[in-house]
């Protein structure tokens, strides 16, 4: 099998660019990255299917070697359909995120931030022997929690949106 070097290079560049965009926080950039990487992989499929030949209609009259390999084409078609659906879903998700928070960034997890702050403040876990400890300790915990949530809010780039987050979480309890 011979592969076209041009297709391989183009595919590799697209995948690399796509993966770079994947590292961004904004869903729109991630979407752009996904489309680039997806098309890059599709090009690689074309590369592995060998040089272009006749359209792959399986008939008795045609020589098997005269037609191009139909399998990668079928796979690429499926992959294109899937990436279209992904694109639509990500657009909707990104729009919804924009509607709620005014931005479309993938945020840090709040509970994670709380646990992290506790560790930094050298406090025991919220579920550790609480019943036996004094009132003082309890307020410590409450303070640390409030602090951690504030920090989680700050950690997000848009301070006001983050605060809204924690507010709703409080409300939900």
């Amino acid at each position: 099998m011979t592969a076209s070097l041009f297709l391989v290079i183009a595919g590799a560049v697209l995948v690399a660019a796509g993966l770079y965009l994947f590292l961004e926080r904004s869903l729109m950039r991630i979407l752009a990255g996904l489309l680039l990487a997806g098309n890059g992989v599709n090009l690689l499929f074309m590369a592995v299917s060998g040089p272009a030949r006749l359209a792959p209609f399986v008939e008795d009259a045609t020589e098997q070697s005269a037609i191009s390999d139909p399998l990668p084409q079928a796979m690429v078609l499926t992959a294109i359909v899937i990436s279209l659906a992904t694109c639509v879903f990500l657009l909707a998700l990104s729009y919804r995120s924009f509607q709620l928070d005014g931005h479309d960034e993938v945020a840090d997890d709040i509970e994670d931030a709380i646990v992290r702050r506790r560790a930094e403040a050298d406090l025991t876990s919220a579920t550790f022997d609480e019943a036996e400890e004094g009132v003082d300790h309890d307020t410590d915990l409450a303070e640390a929690e409030a602090e951690a949530q504030a920090a989680a809010a700050e950690a997000e780039q848009h301070g006001d949106a983050g605060a809204g987050n924690t507010d709703e979480e409080e409300g939900a309890r």
Binding site: V15, L100, D109, A172
Partner: peptide
């Protein structure tokens, strides 16, 4: 709702990466 959009974004991005 806001909570699920936030956690869903993480999940979707990781899954998309693994699909690629």
């Amino acid at each position: 709702p806001r909570e699920r959009v936030r956690s869903g974004s993480t999940y979707v991005v990781v899954s998309l990466f693994s699909s690629i």
